[in-house]
Design a binder for these strands. Structure first.
Lengths: 196, 196
DNA sequence: GATGAAATTAGTTCAAG
DNA sequence: CTTGAACTAATTTCATC
């Protein structure tokens, strides 16, 4: 398995700035041919580095409620359910989970107000406290920087280097640091799914 | 000028979920022809509702530093300079400005740590206090919802309705609630640029 | 505003190095 | 890991409604 090189990073940067520029233009910028660019972009998607192609929408031009930053202090066991519940909502664009069990979300609050929004969207018992800040502006700029690929072995948790391998099972990608981990993972998997 | 209709919203939703689907597919979904879809997307870009086509990158797979949520309390007069300084940084992906003069940013902190990052990126005098939370997860989902176009008249500040008009000057878009405001804006503009 | 047909432009496949 | 050439697919233009 290869890690990311400068060409991948440059492609990511160019796509982040404008995902519609023709591959011929990207190809010229990275001094490769269009088929190479095409293949590398496929690989970036396959690796999950590129999650999706999308549009950045200026919601300040859209009348979709009042933008707030909602900071919810949750019971540690409920962090994931609260994150999922918020991420699910039509009114929520960003969700951040902090190490100290807070879930921070950018929410476009409907007319009913924050309390109603919370009551309807978040498991009542999970919330300890919450805090609301009115937002006056928000920016999003996708960045790539000097990023190196940082994958974790699905079997042993080590960092996956260039020697690693990867495997796709049931639409999920798994990465491994070495053939042994891949093998072990595969047998465990087969045992489990065989028994099911 | 038209406002957004259901077809525009559906197009936005489809693009947000996958900006690469062919126009023929979008066309079928909204029961129009590909040229119509093309034209409407152009218009959404022209209006500034679609800021750009981009890729959603999974930065957790990229080794670009420790993700934190940085919450900076700033002197009110410095809010804009701090926002701009942060948005400028290669390490910052999101910046939110709250109504009570806090600037909240998602930062991928380099090895030097937060203090160094702040010292190098934010005007020293502007910061009153700051607070850091380690992030364990972050989601982004572009949403459209039931959005209506909410433009503000560049001359009088009223809401721009379907009767409004718009004008492009020096690469900037301006919207107006009525022809009088457009006229007045134009004369003011010509007077100012004539004198320069 | 919308369209079908034509023209243009972009993307992918493939055999080969 | 890359490419040029051939092929396939997508987008835009335009005359017309």
């Amino acid at each position: 398995m290869r890690t990311l090189d400068d060409i991948d990073r440059e492609i990511l940067r160019l796509l982040a700035a404008d995902a519609r520029r023709p591959y011929s233009e990207i190809a010229e910028a990275v001094d490769r041919s269009p088929p190479t660019v095409s293949e590398r972009i496929d690989r970036l998607q396959e690796l999950g580095v590129v999650r999706r192609f999308t549009v950045d929408i200026d919601r300040s031009l859209l009348d979709t409620g009042t933008p707030i930053l909602l900071d919810v202090e949750v019971k540690p066991a409920e962090v994931e359910s609260v994150r999922a519940a918020l991420a699910e909502s039509d009114r929520v664009e960003h969700v951040f989970v902090t190490a100290d069990a807070r879930v921070v979300a950018q929410v476009y609050v409907p007319d009913g107000g924050v309390r109603t929004f919370l009551a309807e969207n978040v498991p009542f018992d999970a919330v300890r406290e919450y805090d609301v800040s009115l937002l006056s502006e928000s920016d999003w700029t996708p960045r790539v920087g000097e990023a190196e690929l940082a994958l974790t072995c699905a079997e042993c948790g080590n960092t996956v280097t260039a020697e690693g391998e990867s495997l796709r099972v049931d639409g999920e990608r798994y990465h491994f640091c070495c053939p042994s981990c891949l093998d072990r993972f595969e047998s465990t998997y087969e045992r489990l799914s065989g028994g099911a």
